[in-house]
Design a protein around this nucleic acid. Structure first.
Lengths: 189, 189
DNA sequence: TGCCTGGCTATGGATTCTCATAGCCAGAAG
DNA sequence: CTTCTGGCTATGAGAATCCATAGCCAGGCA
C-alpha cells in the first residue's frame, strides 16, 4: 500500500478517525457478524436467529437491539393467524452493504481455515452458476494487489469518488447518483 | 441469498464449521484487524505497530504473536548498524489475502460511519487513479446483490478454491498481472 | 379463570480483551 | 564494569462478551 500526500510520513498522522476501526467497533463482534450471516441466509425471527447462530437468547436480544440501533436491521411487526403480534428483523440497505465484509471473511476462512474436508458452504452466482469471489478493484475494472493500492487524505466528497460521503441513511438504494464518475455503481444484469 | 440442495431447509443443518465464524475467531479482534491495517500501510516494527495503532505494547506483543502463529505475519530478524538484532513483522501471502476483509470494512465505514467531514483516507488505484471498491462478483464477472448469491453444500474437490488449510503461498487468485484486463475479470457494467 | 407457550429480558459468573504499570534483556555508550 | 536505551514481557485491574439459568408478559386455549 502506498501512502501519498500528507499521509506519506506515517508518523505524521494518526488513524483516529479510521473507518476500519469505526466499522469494527460498530459491528465487529462475533455474534453480530454471525447474526448478519443469518440475516443474509434469510432468517428473520428472534428464536431462529438464536438457535441457528448458536448463541443464547440474551446475547441475541442484545446484539439484535444494537444492530437495529445501528441501522443494519429493522424491526417489523408481523402476525400469523391465531398468534400474537411479533417482530421480525429484516435487512436494511445499510445491512445489505455489509455483504462484502461477511463474504470476504467467509472466503478467507474457506481458503485458509477449512481443513481437508474443504469449505462447508459453496457460494455461486444464482444466475450463471459461477463461484463467487470478493475482489478489490478500482472503478476502471482493474483488480488490485496490496501494493497497487494508494491511500491519500480524504475529506468531503470529491466528484470522483462514487459514493455518498455522508453516511447516515443516504441509501445507495438503486444508485444514489452521487459521483459523475460513470462507474462503480450497480452492475448490469 | 438462496439456500440450495441440502441447505434449502435452514433448520436441517448447522453452521458449525462456518468459515465466517472461524475467520472471525482467528483474526476478528479489533486489535488484530488494526495491526493488519498497519501492516498493509507498510509498518513492520514492534513499537511502530503499538504507537500507530494506539494499543499498549502488551496487547501488541500478544496479538503479533497470534498473527504470526496464524501465519498472517512472519518474523524476520534485521539489524541496523550500531544496533542489536531485532525482529520485523512482514505480511505473508495469507496475510495479504486478508486485504479484501480490511478494505470491505473500511469502505463500509467510509460509507456509513463517516460524518460530514467524509472519510479520513481515500483509496485509489496507484496505476490509474480510480477509486478502489470491494466487490462481490462471480467468476463470470457479474457483480452480485444479496439475493443473487446461492449457497450450496461444499466439500473437498473443486480445484479452484479448494485450497487447503495449511496452504500458504498458493494461488493469490489467478490474476498475477491482472492488468491485461480490457474487460476480462471485471464486473460487468 | 387459570394454565400454557412463544418471544423476549434480567442476573450472575466465566472468558476474553484491553489498559496501565513495571520489569527484563541485549547491546551501545561511557 | 556500569549505565542507558530500545524492544519486548509480565502482572493485575477493568470492561466487554458470552453462557446458563431463571423470569416476565401477551395472548391462545381449556
Amino acid at each position: 500500500m502506498r501512502l501519498e500526500g500528507a499521509l506519506a510520513d506515517r508518523d505524521a498522522w494518526t488513524a483516529d478517525r479510521c473507518s476500519l476501526d469505526r466499522a469494527v467497533q460498530a459491528v465487529g463482534s462475533r455474534s453480530a457478524l454471525l447474526l448478519m450471516r443469518e440475516a443474509f441466509y434469510g432468517t428473520r425471527r428472534f428464536d431462529d436467529f438464536a438457535r441457528r447462530v448458536g448463541i443464547t437468547e440474551a446475547v441475541t436480544a442484545s446484539r439484535l437491539r444494537e444492530l437495529v440501533a445501528a441501522g443494519l436491521l429493522e424491526r417489523h411487526p408481523y402476525r400469523e393467524p391465531g398468534r400474537r403480534t411479533r417482530q421480525e428483523y429484516v435487512l436494511t440497505e445499510r445491512g445489505r452493504d455489509l455483504l462484502p465484509v461477511a463474504l470476504a471473511f467467509m472466503r478467507w476462512g474457506d481458503r485458509h481455515l477449512s481443513g481437508p474436508e474443504g469449505p462447508p458452504v459453496r457460494l455461486t452466482h444464482h444466475g450463471c452458476g459461477a463461484p463467487v469471489q470478493v475482489h478489490v478493484c478500482c472503478d476502471a475494472g482493474h483488480e488490485l494487489a496490496v501494493d497497487e493500492v494508494a491511500a491519500a487524505p480524504g475529506g468531503r466528497d470529491r466528484p470522483e469518488d462514487g459514493d455518498d460521503g455522508d453516511g447516515r441513511g443516504a441509501d445507495t438504494g438503486g444508485n444514489g447518483g452521487a459521483g459523475g464518475d460513470g462507474g462503480g455503481e450497480r452492475p448490469a444484469r
